[in-house]
Design a protein around this nucleic acid. Structure first.
Lengths: 342, 342
DNA sequence: ATCAAAATTTTACGCGCGTCAAAAATCAAG
DNA sequence: CTTGATTTTTGACGCGCGTAAAATTTTGAT
């Protein structure tokens, strides 16, 4: 290493004996400078460990390498996981992702979108809060910045939506549940986003199609602490004898985790065996669902495809600088994950 | 709203009839400009919706409002939760936090520290990877930027460490376990960070103190998928009859969740009742531990105090611009959380 | 109305880097 | 050793804003 630290690109250009614009060119694309020059720069780089200031870089660039990733609630393992995958793909593609969580708050969400404008991102992955989102803000943001909406669809907003085929997925698991036992009731909380609504609708449709009468059980709750809501609601539902069937399809896995805890507390054995009192199924296959007791039968979202496709679409859009003409919806099918809870 | 968008502070200064430096002053601290001026600026603000570019703001400032938060693995609910709390405290204190996850990779960690230098943060909350961290990099970073280390201590590095008193906490739960049943064995994986080592040591000490012979069971695993490691290791341990006791103290809750799943699969009833075959306890009280089946008995880390103190210490350090003379360790006691698993 | 204190404006420069045009250097062929 | 094409250098400006010093205005109290 060298004696004193390099403070900026000009200093580094001096010590490496190359002009600053050329050094700048190198950092933008090492392949764009001549072999001999590149070697000299890289030699100097080993001597002096200098890195361009990424925020200054993006100050006056036509196209930055910044990518924003926005999720509604990062402490939710589902979003933590999907964000992790998207982040990795950004890094692999040479972008600098920055992760934001709205922590369930609409104000924070619009605040994040404002910060993002300052970042001048080349593109953004946005999983909006859903119902609570400030539609106007999101819409205006999507007009200004190439944005891929994922997970939660806001119709008419943005160029592309990549998500989960709730209709198919719910149909799939209901089919399975009905073939293997009693038709399920649907256990949900007040919907925070369109997925919840779509799932309920899909439940109705599937039950109708199969000739069963639907039973929707909605329990109260308005936070992102789904396990807690499922637990409390589960206790209430069990104790009041509201269950018309022994099979419970939960709107999502976290709710199911709470319900399982309630069933356990009430000593109801959950599973598909003959000695079980209750079958419980979830939706999403979130990262810890295979470790519940019993392991949770559920429909998996196709994490990989959603992350891959979102990334691919956004990166392509960034490359050719074109905004899509028509809005595009990309949905991936859910996969049935048969475990022992149902 | 106005006809055309304001592109920068100069334009906004023009339309509001105030000089740019004063406008700048206003955005730095609205209270620092005269009443009438503030009113005029705020009037213009309602007309034109302009926001300063936060990254340009921090370009040439003596002290920025940026705060970095770095955690080793964000998909771990513990870190998601603690990060969420710290983030909120930053926002409440008027800072702009940016969240980074090393995703378990040392390279990413040092990459993050490099990006952070570009951000010129006023301060950083850093929960290092631990063993895998590039010590030299972290040390150099801490010298340049006011940093509060939390969760994982790297001795001698940084000015302050805020964390959990593993010695006390492990002693506490072992006391409890021994008073209520058989002395526990200690179930762990190869340690990723100092906490794991401290907990094992504390286990040894406590067992010694109480006159019991310790049994440490280490299962293989080197990823951050603790549940999976605990599950696989749990199956192995149960099947091979390695358990010399019916009480298992896991190194952390996530490992315990995996162990619970293994026990369930092997039809071992877990709990402290007379009809139970096994007692299982964890450590951390991570957000979902109360929803396991059975609910997990554990020692809680004091999330709130850790987040509060970390924040308070860093903010104070930022305010008076002083670096601590002597290194300071702040530890918070664990609380015993008695649930039904042990 | 008078005057000192406080605030604002003017003017100018800096942060770290992107980018562009023109001039100079380097390169691959011939 | 030319010639023409490609790169690099030079010089200059821009991004959006912070900051500092001096000149000017406003304020509030006398």
């Amino acid at each position: 290493m060298s004696k004193r630290k390099i403070r900026n690109m000009a200093e580094f250009a001096t010590v490496s004996g190359i002009s600053r614009p050329t050094v700048s060119k190198y950092f933008n694309d090492p392949g764009s400078v001549r072999e001999t020059i590149r070697a000299r720069i890289e030699a100097a780089l080993e001597q002096h460990d200098y890195r361009p200031n990424i925020y200054a870089m993006n100050q006056n660039r036509r196209l930055t390498k910044n990518i924003g990733i926005v999720v509604p609630y990062l402490a939710d393992p589902f979003f933590a996981e999907i964000a992790r995958r998207i982040e990795r793909r950004c890094i692999d593609a040479g972008f600098s992702p920055t992760l934001f969580s709205a922590h369930g708050s609409p104000d924070l969400e619009t605040g994040i979108l404002d910060s993002l404008r300052s970042l001048k991102p080349a593109g953004v992955f946005l999983a909006p809060l859903g119902r609570a989102s400030d539609r106007a803000q999101v819409e205006s943001f999507c007009r200004d910045v190439p944005t891929v909406l994922f997970d939660s669809n806001l119709d008419g907003i943005g160029d592309v939506f990549v998500g989960h085929d709730n209709l198919q997925a719910v149909g799939l698991i209901i089919d399975y549940l009905c073939r293997t036992g009693a038709p399920p009731c649907f256990f949900e909380m007040p919907p925070l986003n369109p997925n919840a609504n779509k799932r309920r609708e899909a439940y109705h449709r599937a039950m109708e199609r199969l000739g069963h009468t639907p039973q929707v059980i909605r329990v109260p709750g308005d936070s992102w602490e789904f396990e807690s809501i499922g637990y409390r609601g589960g206790l209430e539902v069990i104790d009041s004898g509201q269950l018309a069937t022994n099979t419970v399809l939960c709107s999502n896995d976290r709710l199911a985790v709470g319900f399982l805890a309630a069933a356990y507390e009430r000593r109801l054995r959950v599973g598909h065996g003959p000695d079980c009192a209750l079958r419980v199924a979830g939706h999403d296959d979130h990262p810890f669902s295979r470790f519940t007791c019993p392991p949770l039968t559920t429909v998996a979202q196709d994490y990989d495809s959603i992350a891959d496709q979102s990334a691919e679409i956004l990166f392509r859009q960034i490359e050719d600088g074109s905004r899509a003409e028509t809005r595009q919806d990309v949905l991936f099918e859910g996969k049935l994950i048969m475990r022992s809870s149902a």
